[in-house]
């Protein structure tokens, strides 16, 4: 490390800006994660250019294997739908649902965690009981129940995943806020007459961000996985193609034509793996463990 005088100080945002990005890119697993994620993002962005038309339309003969026909590089399913087109368009759905659901979860989790940790006492006890209530219900079954009640659509699936996945984050944020609330920084702000809102948004949350960023990447991965599971069970949005839905559709032909289920399955694995690698890398870099390795 170049600046030894700051070695003992807690990591700060400039340190992250100066060095974190560089250190993240030097970490092979994080780099692989970033490249894979960039690839999936590119697929989502160029889906309409590469595969114009509805990916749910019948495009050719059913159950073509990869390599059978030049215009279907990944083959077709039992309805004659182009698998490559499905993968590209499915990336959109997966990323959209993963991203927005994680955002919903972040807003609820940070909000509840910050209020709970900052105000403590009765507010904390009430909010933590609610959080525990959410933690006791298995998240996937909870999501499943919500989607079944609300009718599956992209909006309801996203909301349901967001509503069921914030509890861990809320506890994490609460712990960080609790630590920072008693710090000299918060005390100094109180002494200088800062309002609660200013202390929370200016002095506490920005300093609590590192673990939140790490868990956000894992939240996206989990949300993608949950959406895939819902679609596999037939509770996906029926009007859009999704990777989980494609695996579900390929299930019937798994013994004769395993590629129909396997190809979207691999896509899910890659997306979740990419986000987890990135999350691990961020964790090492932001939480300061990376330097001692």
């Amino acid at each position: 490390m170049a600046r030894t005088d700051t070695a003992s100080l807690p990591p700060t945002r400039t340190d992250f800006r100066d060095r974190a990005v560089g250190r993240l890119l030097r970490r092979p697993s994080a780099l692989v994660g970033l490249i894979l994620l960039a690839g999936i993002l590119a697929m989502a962005a160029f889906a309409d250019v590469a595969f114009p038309g509805d990916p749910l339309d019948m495009a050719g003969s059913p159950l073509l294997r990869p390599g059978d026909a030049a215009e279907f590089p990944l083959g077709t399913d039992m309805m004659g739908r182009d698998l490559a087109s499905g993968i590209f368009h499915g990336a959109r759905v997966s990323l959209l649902i993963g991203g927005v659901a994680a955002l919903v979860s972040l807003v609820i989790g940070i909000g509840i965690g910050a209020l709970s940790g900052y105000y403590g006492g009765r507010v904390d006890r009430a909010l933590m009981r609610v959080t525990e209530l959410f933690q006791t219900i298995p998240p996937f079954l909870f999501t499943l129940a919500l989607v079944a009640i609300l009718q599956p659509s992209i909006a309801t699936i996203t909301t349901a995943i967001g509503i069921t996945s914030w509890s861990g984050l809320a506890r994490l944020v609460r712990a960080e806020v609790l630590r920072l609330r008693n710090s000299e920084l918060a005390q100094a702000s109180i002494i200088l007459g800062a309002s609660d809102a200013r202390i929370i948004f200016l002095h506490i949350l920005p300093n609590a961000l590192a673990p939140v960023i790490v868990s956000a990447s894992i939240l996206v991965a989990t949300a993608i996985l949950t959406e895939s599971s819902l679609s596999f069970l037939g509770l996906g949005d029926p009007n859009v193609v999704s990777w989980g839905g494609m695996v579900g559709a390929g299930r019937e032909t798994i013994r004769t034509d395993p590629h129909v289920a396997a190809i979207p399955g691999v896509a899910i694995v890659i997306a979740v793996l990419a986000l987890n690698l990135l999350g691990d890398g961020l964790n090492d870099v932001l939480n300061g463990k990376g330097e001692r390795r």
């Binding site: 100080l9 807690p10 000299e184 100094a188 200088l192």
Partner: peptide
């Protein structure tokens, strides 16, 4: 506080916001 009466303390590092 901060407007009519103000305070400084011992440890200026921990009282400043690092971000």
């Amino acid at each position: 506080r901060g407007a009519r009466i103000s305070m400084i303390f011992q440890e200026p590092m921990t009282a400043l916001n690092p971000v």
